[in-house]
Structures are given as C-alpha cells and as structure tokens.
Computed example of a mutant assay.
Amino acid sequence: GIFIENDGNSIAFNETPGHGHDAVFSMSSGQLSALVLSFTLALNQRYAKHTLLLVDDPVQTLDEINVAGFVELLRTEFQDRQIIMSTHEDRMSAYFRYKYKKFGMSAGRINFMEAARSGIDSR
C-alpha cells in the first residue's frame, strides 16, 4: 500500500508510514498514472459539487489490468455521474462502451475527426 503523509507544506506517498522516501520517485509512468487517477478520483468522489466527470486520455500509460480496474471503478463507484472521457485509442473506447452496455448502462462515442471530415465533405 501507499500512505499519504502531509507535513503541512507538501504531501508524500510513502510505502511505510514515517519513512522519508517518497514512493513516487521509484514508480514507472504507468504506476504514476494509476496513482494520480486514484488520488484524483478519490478527491472527486469526496468533494465534487457536480455530477459531470471529465477525464482526458487516462489509459495511455496503463497496462490492460489497470485499464480493466479503471473501467470497473468508474462503472461502479461513479455510476451516478455523467462521464466524458477522451482517448486516442479506438480499441479502448470500444472496450469502455462494451463494459458499460453489458451492465445496462448507456455509453456513446463521438469521433471529432470523423465529424469534422463529414462537415467539410458536405459543403
């Protein structure tokens, strides 16, 4: 586990309480992304005043296991929110929509590049 410690000026993510080594400095980019997502979502879950959740390309550095955990977390813990997520990966977009629809939840896709091209082509 990771313990969040606050000295009044900053926070540290320590593997052992009271230990001076911040775990952030020994994490991979995927682990850092997972940590930032977890921390941000926890703060959002506790303090958000709105039901809209915007997430910008959260899966770019996550492995498949963390992506699966992330979609399950959003689907179960944030089911009362409208979630708008951007991604550059069609496969991930399809996976997220599949997981939501499998459990009877609504999900949609907007491809802004396709929309822009069709708008240009129709002129």
Rank of each mutant, 00 (worst) to 15 (best):
T87I: 05
Q31T: 10
Y98P: 04
K102G: 01
F70M: 03
R91L: 03
F96H: 00
R75W: 07
L37A: 02
K99N: 06
V55L: 13
E5Q: 00
Y98D: 15
Q45S: 14
F39I: 05
L62E: 03
A48E: 10
I65R: 12
S122V: 10
E89M: 07
T51W: 12
S106V: 10
K99Q: 15
L73G: 06
S122M: 11
F25V: 05
H88E: 02
M92D: 01
G104P: 00
N66T: 06
D90H: 13
Y95E: 04
M27R: 06
M85L: 14
I65F: 12
L54A: 07
N14K: 15
V59T: 12
F25H: 10
G69W: 00
A23D: 08
H88K: 08
S86E: 05
N14T: 14
V24R: 08
Q82V: 03
F112N: 02
S106D: 11
D80T: 14
T51R: 15
D22N: 11
F70Y: 01
L62T: 03
L43K: 12
F103E: 15
Q45I: 05
D22F: 00
H19V: 05
V71M: 02
G30F: 00
G119V: 07
A12C: 05
T16R: 13
L54N: 04
H50D: 13
A115C: 10
F96S: 01
F78Q: 05
H50L: 13
Q82C: 07
K102E: 15
F39V: 01
A48Q: 04
A34F: 06
M113G: 02
M27T: 10
S38E: 01
D80R: 13
N44R: 11
L41Y: 00
K99I: 07
T76M: 04
L32C: 00
F112G: 11
S33C: 10
S122I: 10
E89F: 09
N9K: 14
E72S: 11
N9T: 11
R97I: 15
T16E: 14
K101L: 13
N44K: 12
Y98F: 14
T61A: 12
H50Q: 14
S29M: 09
F39Y: 14
P58H: 03
F39A: 09
E89T: 09
E72Y: 00
M27W: 03
D57A: 07
A94T: 11
K102Y: 01
G20E: 13
G119S: 10
T76G: 03
F25T: 08
G8T: 05
V36I: 13
G1V: 09
I110G: 02
S106C: 01
Q82A: 08
A34I: 02
L74Y: 05
R123G: 10
G20N: 13
D90P: 12
A94K: 11
V55I: 15
S26I: 09
P58G: 04
A116Q: 04
T40N: 15
V67F: 04
S118K: 14
I84Q: 02
G104L: 09
A115F: 05
E89S: 14
V67S: 07
K101S: 05
M113H: 12
A48N: 03
E15T: 12
H50G: 06
R46G: 04
F103N: 14
L74H: 03
